[in-house]
């Protein structure tokens, strides 16, 4: 994981991922460039996944904390 992976926002990663996929699907680029794009796409997809997994964990944790009676319920 590079520094960028942890600082880039979900929206940035998502937008760039969409662009990468569009470029790859449109074709007409050199093999070297498409491989680089694909690697970039994989990394961006991982970043997005980590964001979503993290958000889900936080949501689940908050739900679990709420269901535990906290004494003054």
């Amino acid at each position: 994981m590079t520094d960028e992976d942890t600082t880039v926002s979900y929206e940035q990663a998502r937008a760039e991922l969409a662009t990468v996929v569009e470029k790859l699907e449109a074709g007409g680029i050199s093999l070297e460039e498409s491989l680089a794009l694909w690697e970039r796409g994989e990394r961006l997809a991982d970043v997005c996944q980590r964001w979503l997994d993290g958000a889900k964990e936080r949501l689940d944790a908050a739900r679990a904390a709420r269901e535990e009676p906290s004494g003054n319920g």
Binding site: V21, G41, C48
Partner: peptide
């Protein structure tokens, strides 16, 4: 959305 993008042939 992410699953869909990841399942596109190019990725």
């Amino acid at each position: 959305w992410l699953a869909n993008v990841r399942s596109r042939p190019v990725l």
